[in-house]
Design a protein around this nucleic acid. Structure first.
Lengths: 198, 198
DNA sequence: AGTAAAAAGTGAACGATGTTCATATTTTTG
DNA sequence: CAAAAATATGAACATCGTTCACTTTTTACT
């Protein structure tokens, strides 16, 4: 690899690192181009030599968050000694824990508004589908006769529902659940859903 | 009322009207102080004579949206000939319809990020609690022995879950349900929840 | 009615921000 | 090693929300 593109690749990494750190500390709304340039020791203009705009940089930082969610969910799904129902509840609790403990990156992943018609890279959608896979697997165990299409719809429904419960509970300004009730309510929500569709 | 405070009150109304219109047409992210001043025919500075900042104006516009949601939900809840279970499903569908048909105001209500420690007026929380009341009523019919505390938790869970399903389904960039599946899945979600907790 | 005080209106100016671009520097190529 | 290509730079620009010194209007009082 040439010297120039090596530097460029390193700057690419450094900027994502810096963005990730700033998002984790101050939230995605406080991300500033000038701060990032100072953090990594480059000029303001250099950022735009590596990324089209700040949104492109945010996408990469968000991708890290998405991978981190995937990791904790993969770990939760691997713990399947107690059967698929326990896995489903475990996944929901794990998602809640992640949103709680890595709140600012998690919020950045869902809250940042991209410009109209801004195209997210394909691997961002693939990363989200990977999350669904963790849900689809135990669901397919529970309903061996369901079509993949049915499993896909149900997994999206459950993910969305759990996401909504977690999101509103962690938002001070909306009528979500008090945080101490979330685990119980998630268990009730999932259990009844699984029971009601056997 | 004095002449001066009459004008001020009128400007207050005009600005909220203008903000509401702009949010409905272009989304809350495109709201600009200068545009609003032009819309209502006042100077840029006059806005800050009536509102502390644009966030305060947005709160009032969002309050209108909240009231509009309350109205459609009240209408849906009034249609209770088929019993509380049908009301619950009807409420969810109504919420989905509102989010679809008044998408930009609805997104503005949940998407706009206020400054850290910005205090929303009490009546904004009260408006949200009014929404919950529509859910609590049929729930209380279904479980006459449940405490108000239990009903409150369950209503928040169901609202949050429905909100999550609706939110992600209407967001192109996340793994929500395809819009044509939302109604069915909402019905399944609610039905199974109500069945599983009889 | 007249006048002083208070309130409201005004828009230029400020500071912050994302982005661009002419220029300088570095790296690659032949 | 010199020309060309790539990269780096930061001043400058456009667009925001917000402020404030100043003007105009309204109110209060004699």
């Amino acid at each position: 690899m040439s010297k120039a593109s090596q530097r460029k690749a390193q700057l690419h990494i450094d900027l994502i690192d810096a963005a990730e750190k700033r998002i984790a500390e101050h939230g995605i709304t406080q991300l500033r181009a000038r701060d990032l340039a100072r953090d990594v020791g480059c000029s303001l203009g250099s950022i735009y030599n590596v990324f089209d705009d700040l949104h492109a940089l945010i996408v990469h930082a968000n991708a890290r968050t998405l991978m981190a969610i995937d990791e904790v969910m993969a770990a939760a799904a691997a713990n399947d000694d107690d059967g698929p129902r326990a896995v489903m509840i475990n996944l929901a609790w794990t998602y809640f824990d992640f949103a709680t403990n890595y709140n600012k990156p998690w919020r950045g992943l869902f809250d940042h508004v991209f410009p109209k018609n801004y195209d997210l890279p394909e691997w961002m959608y693939e990363g989200q589908l990977k999350l669904l896979n963790h849900i689809e697997k135990p669901l397919a165990e529970l309903w061996p006769n369901a079509t993949t299409e049915e499993i896909s719809l149900i997994s999206r429904t459950l993910f969305s529902a759990v996401h909504g419960v977690v999101e509103l509970s962690l938002d001070d300004r909306t009528v979500g659940l008090p945080p101490e009730s979330v685990r119980n309510q998630l268990e009730i929500l999932i259990t009844s859903f699984l029971d009601g569709n056997e």
